[in-house]
Design a protein around this nucleic acid. Structure first.
Lengths: 202, 202
DNA sequence: ACTAGAATTAGACACAGTGTACAACTTTGG
DNA sequence: CCAAAGTTGTACACTGTGTCTAATTCTAGT
């Protein structure tokens, strides 16, 4: 199975068919026969490329992460800053371009594996940045960086899914990214309009 | 199907069997026959209570949310404060008690429906509190409360799952809840050890 | 303690989808 | 143009699903 025009077409078709059908009917309601039919390919060929449905979905996340990682790497070479909110904007823009794939993944379709891969990869990336920043600036974490990272990725993923779901997104990518950065940087009380945390609370 | 000793036993057994087996082998690898066998019940009886596997899982989330809601309601009657981090502690304590059920749900096992129900319910609850607080204090949101809420729930869910996974939890419930509250209230830069946001960033 | 009704059972059924295999065919790249 | 790579249709055994039924066991209320 070398890289041909044909094989590429086949794999692309299978991936986008899965995405389309899953969004339409839900993961469990889609059979391999359905995917093959939608892709105009025989069921036998499906098995030439993927062991089963989960394998195809996993490949979709891996591809997506690969593309995202490439864009972030390009940014890193340009900017070399651990303080830019740029990375988040890139994530949201990428997600908008690949809206359907992201929706399938972030919804957790097909046992949660795809989502788990996505979250874990993002977590690793974020953790590295946080730790490197602390190292460079000599700053001491006030809370466990593990929790910090998990929380940060959790925010991203949840807001991302919410933002992607409607057909038209009223808020542009750059703007949600900025909002999320502001919230994360300044905290929830600031975001709620308080200038300081009210007395005798929390 | 009135509430008997027998029917209650049957339903409980089916629920905990599903949870146990899913944690052991993953949702898709568990058959209804497996669940019934584990619960010492015939497959026919399974169908007397639940249409299918998803229906059973959904019931599990609904039960859990019901119990959690009851505890939070009790708190609300006692405290009547919109500024307490108490609610979060209750969530973490509840999750620790029902660790296995929470893990199955938060992992997103069996198409993401159970997780979606969980997240949506939490989101509604959080949104109500945020809006009510703003109303009471007359505060103006600096960012869209919808995003604020989604992000907050996203943090909770992600950290919760991370915290629940290991067999023994090194950080007690009350403490993670406090950490999460601190982070959320003061923001990520504070949590990373910065006293103010560095110049020319974000 | 008895009994009507509720709950559970085993087993059979048709069915849909899976994963594998293979021989025949079409397309591709050099 | 042709050998190799890719694709196809078809068939197979198999697993699990959901429905049904007649027989059996348990429960609650008198």
């Amino acid at each position: 199975m070398v890289e041909n025009r044909r094989t590429r077409r086949t794999q692309r078709a299978l991936k986008s068919s899965l995405i389309e059908l899953v969004l339409e009917r839900g993961y469990d309601a889609v059979t391999i026969e359905d995917i093959a039919a939608e892709a105009d390919i025989s069921r036998a060929t499906f098995y030439a490329y993927y062991r089963d449905k989960p394998a195809l979905l996993t490949q979709i996340v891996l591809d997506l992460q690969g593309e995202l990682a490439a864009r972030l790497e390009r940014l890193r070479l340009r900017e070399n800053s651990y303080f830019s909110g740029e990375a988040l904007r890139i994530l949201f823009e990428h997600a908008e371009e690949e809206r359907d794939a992201y929706r399938v993944i972030l919804r957790g379709e097909g046992d949660g594996t795809a989502l788990r891969i996505f979250v874990d990869t993002r977590t690793e990336a974020a953790k590295e940045i946080f730790l490197k920043r602390a190292e460079v600036t000599g700053t001491q974490f006030r809370i466990d960086p593990e929790i910090l990272t998990r929380a940060w990725v959790g925010e991203q993923v949840t807001v991302l899914l919410w933002w992607l779901e409607p057909e038209e997104r009223p808020i542009p990518a750059a703007e949600v990214a900025q909002v999320l950065t502001d919230l994360s940087v300044h905290g929830r009380m600031w975001a709620s309009g308080f200038d300081e945390v009210p007395e005798g609370t929390f």
